[in-house]
Amino acid sequence: MTKLSDLGPPMPGMPHGKGKENGQDYFYSCATCGQKVDMRDFRQVMWHEKPDHEPLEPEPDATVIEFTGKK
């Protein structure tokens, strides 16, 4: 399985369109594998654009942000 760190160093970016109201607005669920994708990281976006990809393997030292509030 592929880890996010296997894809190279972070490639920060910003989604196009209007400004985001909170951190949760930067994530979407991949239609192929269902994994949450952070649109601010170009590595993740490009990985999830590949047809028939697998989810990225979780990394033990990665920080996962949980959003519990509603919009």
Rank of each mutant, 00 (worst) to 15 (best):
E57S: 13
G19S: 09
R40P: 03
M11K: 15
P15T: 01
P9R: 12
W47Q: 00
G8I: 08
P15N: 05
L7W: 00
E59C: 12
I65L: 14
G34R: 00
E66T: 15
V37D: 03
V37P: 03
M46R: 05
M1H: 08
T32R: 00
L56H: 11
I65A: 13
H53N: 01
L7Q: 06
M46T: 05
K71T: 10
Y28H: 07
F42G: 06
S29V: 04
P15G: 07
A31N: 04
P9C: 08
C33A: 02
Y28D: 00
L56Y: 09
E49K: 10
H48Y: 00
F42Q: 15
P12K: 10
E49A: 07
S5T: 11
P10T: 06
F42N: 11
E57K: 14
G8V: 09
M46V: 04
Y28C: 03
C33G: 01
T68W: 14
P10L: 08
F27Y: 11
T63Y: 12
W47T: 00
K3S: 14
P15V: 04
L56G: 10
R43Y: 03
L4W: 08
T68I: 14
H48G: 00
V64W: 14
K71R: 13
S29E: 07
L56F: 10
E66D: 15
L7T: 02
K71V: 10
P58D: 12
E66V: 15
A31H: 02
M39P: 00
G34Q: 01
G19I: 04
I65V: 15
L56V: 12
G69M: 15
H53P: 01
D6P: 07
H53S: 03
E21L: 07
K20M: 09
V45H: 00
E49S: 10
Q44F: 01
C30E: 04
E57H: 13
T32Q: 08
K70N: 14
P10Q: 10
C33H: 00
T68Q: 14
Y26H: 07
P60W: 14
K70I: 11
R40W: 05
Q24P: 02
G17N: 10
G69N: 15
Y28P: 01
Q24T: 05
P10W: 06
P51L: 03
Q44A: 07
D25M: 04
G13E: 12
G34P: 02
D6K: 05
